Amino acid sequence: MNLQELITLATDGQIRELELLSLEGGFYIVRAQLHDKARTLLDSRGKAMHLHSATQLRDLLRDLPSSAPTMPCVLVQHVVHDELCGVRQGPIEPLRLPISLSLAW
């Protein structure tokens, strides 16, 4: 999905949650959780769009109408320390921190 599709889906209230996935290498990708599937934000070449910060995501969404439904957003980060040390047993879930799309702090 491109940025315009993301804005349209958000405006129509079809996005259940927006995830900002932190990946190795210091960049993020955006994944929209719809009611029936997840879609990744793509750049003009059709590749996953790499972002450098939550602020960049806020800037991308500045064209989202103020009348659009509230869209929860979370920063998703896998805890590498837990994976490397192997101390915990069972599945290791990623860290999920709510972030604001309207406020920087």
Rank of each mutant, 00 (worst) to 15 (best):
E5D: 11
T8S: 14
T8V: 15
A10C: 11
A10M: 14
T11A: 08
T11D: 12
D12V: 12
G13N: 08
G13Q: 11
I15H: 00
R16T: 08
E17M: 07
L18Q: 03
E19M: 14
E19Y: 12
L20E: 06
L20V: 11
L20M: 10
L20K: 02
L21T: 12
S22D: 14
L23D: 04
E24T: 14
E24Q: 09
G25M: 08
G25C: 09
G25A: 14
G25D: 12
G26R: 13
F27S: 05
I29Q: 00
V30P: 00
V30E: 03
R31C: 08
R31W: 05
R31A: 14
A32Q: 02
A32G: 07
Q33H: 07
H35E: 15
D36R: 04
D36I: 10
K37G: 07
K37F: 05
K37P: 00
A38I: 12
A38T: 12
A38V: 13
A38D: 06
T40W: 01
T40I: 13
L41Q: 05
L42E: 13
D43L: 06
D43F: 08
D43G: 08
S44A: 15
S44N: 08
R45T: 15
R45P: 03
K47G: 07
K47I: 06
H50N: 04
L51T: 04
L51M: 09
L51F: 01
L51E: 03
H52E: 12
A54G: 06
A54V: 06
A54P: 02
T55G: 07
R58A: 13
R58F: 08
D59T: 10
D59Y: 01
D59R: 06
D59I: 13
L60S: 09
L60H: 03
R62W: 08
R62E: 11
D63G: 10
L64Q: 05
P65C: 13
P65A: 13
P65K: 11
S66M: 14
S66P: 00
S66L: 13
A68I: 10
P69G: 12
T70N: 00
T70W: 08
T70G: 01
T70F: 08
M71E: 11
P72D: 05
C73A: 10
V74W: 03
V74N: 02
L75R: 00
L75Q: 05
V76A: 02
Q77N: 06
Q77F: 03
H78A: 06
D82W: 12
L84W: 10
C85V: 11
C85Q: 12
G86L: 09
V87R: 04
V87T: 09
V87C: 04
V87P: 02
V87Y: 15
R88H: 15
Q89H: 13
Q89P: 00
G90A: 07
P91H: 12
P91T: 13
I92Y: 02
E93C: 02
P94E: 11
L95Q: 11
R96D: 03
I99D: 03
S100D: 05
S100M: 04
L101A: 06
S102C: 09
L103F: 13
L103H: 05
W105H: 01
